[in-house]
Amino acid sequence: MNVTINGKNENLEINKEKFSIIDLLKVKDVEMPDMVSVELNGTILNRSTYESTFISEGDKIEFLYFMGGGSGKYPAAFEKIKTADNNK
């Protein structure tokens, strides 16, 4: 399935008929859904709907990450996400 994630076109290998936001987060190695906000086609999704929201061909998805301040108090999960992104 072709989707756009954070502005980049990606061809996702879908292993089931209905592919939810939670499934996508897993594929993208985001372990804690609490650490990311997801925008689907211009609308921010409520966290409680990640499981019941399914993505389809052509969707535009944005992962928005928490960012703190100059002290760098920030979860390590972020770097993992970025590394995973870069390796693909």
Binding site: D34, M35, G72
Partner: peptide, 20 residues
Amino acid sequence: CLFETLPPKGAVPSCSEAGV
């Protein structure tokens, strides 16, 4: 509107892991 609530406590690692 983007981030509904503060990130969970358990998700914040030690400062030494981060940087800028």
